[in-house]
């Protein structure tokens, strides 16, 4: 028996099952929904006008995260070179 086989217990993990990742995704959606609505239930002490916007932090987080990833992806056009570029 090789070292590799010894270390692989072969057991299927919950995460490997089809559908598990979907469950995590929908739980995340649910958490986001609850957090978004939570804005209605506490008193805000904002420093800036924009913070009064309902769900401001949620929208900010989502929009700028998507923007970050997509613009970084576009940056690859200019910045990506072969792994041995400097060699």
């Amino acid at each position: 028996m090789t070292d590799h086989e010894k270390l692989d217990d072969g057991a299927k993990r919950w995460l490997d099952r089809p559908g598990s990742v979907d469950i995590i995704f929908w739980i995340l959606c649910l958490v986001c929904g609850v957090l978004f609505l939570a804005d209605a239930f506490y008193v805000k002490h904002p420093h800036f006008e924009v913070e009064y916007l309902f769900g401001f932090y949620a929208l900010f987080g989502f929009v700028f995260s998507v923007g970050l990833v997509l613009s970084a992806k576009e940056l690859r056009r200019f910045l990506k070179r072969g792994e041995d570029y400097y060699d």
Binding site: F25, L28, C29, V31, C32, L35, F36, A38, D39, Y42, V43, K44, H45, G55, F56, Y57, A58, L59, F60, G61, F62, S65, V66, V69
Partner: peptide, 21 residues
């Protein structure tokens, strides 16, 4: 409350953005 909720909102929706992408 405000700090905890707003920070969780920011992070949860950033995670949602990752999941959607």
């Amino acid at each position: 409350t405000a700090h905890v909720v707003t920070m969780l909102q920011l992070l949860a929706f950033a995670a949602l953005a990752f999941a959607v992408l």
